[in-house]
Simulated scan of single mutants.
Amino acid sequence: MTKTICKILMVLFFVSCSKDDNTSETNPTQTMYFPPLTGSTWETTSISDLKWNQNAVQPLLDYLELKHSKSFIILVNGRIVMENYFNGHTASTNWYWASAGKTLTSTVTGIAQQENLLNINNKVSQYIGTGWTSEALGKENLITCRHLLTMTSGLDDSKDDVDPANLIYKADAGTRWAYHNVYVKLQDVVAQASGQTWENYFNTKLRDKIGMNGNWVQLGVNSVYTSTSRSMARFGLLMLNKGKWDNNIILNETYFNEATTTSQNINLGYGYLWWLNGKTNYHLPQSQLTFQGSIIPTAPNDMFMALGKNDQKIYVVPSKNMVIIRMGDAADDVNLALSDFDKTLWEKISALYQ
C-alpha cells in the first residue's frame, strides 16, 4: 500500500511539473523578453493571451488615427501586444523624439557617472569651464549637473537659446523649477568628461548596447534624437527593467531610482528629466503654478513618462510590466508636451485590460 501511495504521489508530482512547464510555454508573458540586438525578430503576445478586451482595440486605433498618430506600440513583459502605423508611417521610418529625448540625456549622464567620469553633484563649470552663462561667477557656480537634470538651474526660462547671453539669472539654483533647454549642457559635460563627442559616447554606451537605431540632429537650439518607433520601445523596455538589458547592467539601479522618483520639492511630478505620474501635485512647462493631483489621472499612478512636443510619448508602467510608445504629429492644436490627449488616450488604453 505504501509503495502504491508513493507511486501515485510521484505521478502527481511529475504531472504538476509538466503543467508548470506548459504554463511557461503557452503564456510567454510570465518571463521578461528582450529582442535581439540586430534583425527584425521581436516576440509577440496577443490580446487573447493576456485575456484583454478585444472590443476595446478598434476604438483605441480609431482615436489614434483621428489624433494624427504615426505609430503606436504596446509591450507587455517586452513582447509586442500591439504595433500599428498610420498615415504612411512604417516600421522603418525615423521620427523625432522632441523633448521625450531628454530622458536619453538623463540616462547617458547616469552612465557617465557610474563610469566615474563625472559626479552630478559637481558644478557644471567644473566640466565645461566658467562663463557658460551670463550670471555672476558666484551664482553660476551654484549650478550643478543635478540642477540641470531637475530643471532647477534658476536660469530665466523665457528664452530657449542656450548661448551664454541668453542664460540669465532668475533665481538661485535649486530654488525655482522651470522647464528650460539648458539641460543640453549636460551633453557638453558628458563630452568633456569622456573625451569623446556626445554622439559617439551615446552610441557606444547606450544605443548599440540595446539595439537602437537613430541619430542626433540639430533643430534650432536643440539636439533632437530621431529613430524608429521600435528603437523608442527598446529604450522604454530598458527603463522598465531598471536600466538592465537582459542580464547586462546599462544604467545602475541607484541612479535609475533617483531618476524616476521626485527629484526636488517644487515639482513633485519630475525626476531627472522624466515626468512622474501619481503625485499629489505638479508643475507644467512655462508655468509657475502648482496643479493639484496626478498629471494623468486616468493612467496608473506608478507610471513614469518621456513626453515631447507634438505628443511624442514613452509611457512606462512597472505595475503592469508595460511600455507604450506613441509617435506622430500634434494630437490637437495645443502642442505642449502634455495635453488632454493623454487623459483620453489612457481611458482607451485602460479599457483594454480593465
Rank of each mutant, 00 (worst) to 15 (best):
E65C: 09
D21E: 13
Y282A: 02
R79W: 02
Q187N: 14
V224Q: 08
T175R: 06
Q264R: 04
N94T: 15
I168D: 07
S158I: 14
W216N: 14
I266W: 00
Y270G: 09
E83A: 02
W42I: 11
A165T: 11
I111V: 09
V81N: 04
K51T: 12
L251D: 04
P36I: 00
W52K: 01
R176Y: 15
H147N: 15
W132I: 15
T152V: 08
N277F: 01
Y127A: 13
D157W: 07
W346S: 02
E347C: 07
L104R: 00
G154F: 08
L50S: 05
A173V: 10
L155H: 15
W52M: 06
E253M: 03
K279D: 01
W346H: 07
P285E: 05
N310E: 11
D208N: 09
Q312D: 11
A233I: 07
S227I: 02
P35R: 03
D161S: 15
I296K: 02
P318K: 03
S92R: 00
S99W: 05
W275E: 02
M303D: 01
L50N: 05
W177D: 09
G101V: 09
T130V: 14
I249K: 08
Y169F: 07
Q58F: 00
I47W: 04
L338S: 10
T133I: 01
K159S: 12
N213G: 13
L117K: 05
Q30T: 07
V76W: 00
N87R: 06
D246E: 14
R176S: 15
W95D: 08
N94E: 04
E43D: 09
S229I: 08
D172Y: 08
M32W: 07
S319R: 01
S18D: 10
T260F: 00
L238Q: 00
R207K: 14
W346F: 15
G39E: 06
P59D: 01
I266Q: 00
N301Q: 13
I73M: 05
Y255Q: 01
S92Y: 05
I324V: 13
G308Y: 03
T144H: 02
L273A: 06
T26V: 15
K309T: 12
Q218K: 13
H283N: 14
T29N: 12
F235H: 09
S153L: 08
D21F: 15
L66Y: 10
L336C: 09
A337P: 14
F341N: 09
A259W: 01
W274R: 02
A306I: 05
G211V: 03
F86P: 06
F13L: 13
N301L: 14
L273F: 02
T29Q: 12
N247D: 15
T280R: 10
Y33R: 00
E347M: 12
T175F: 00
N84C: 10
Y169K: 08
I324H: 02
C6P: 07
A112I: 04
M32H: 09
K244G: 07
L268P: 04
S287A: 06
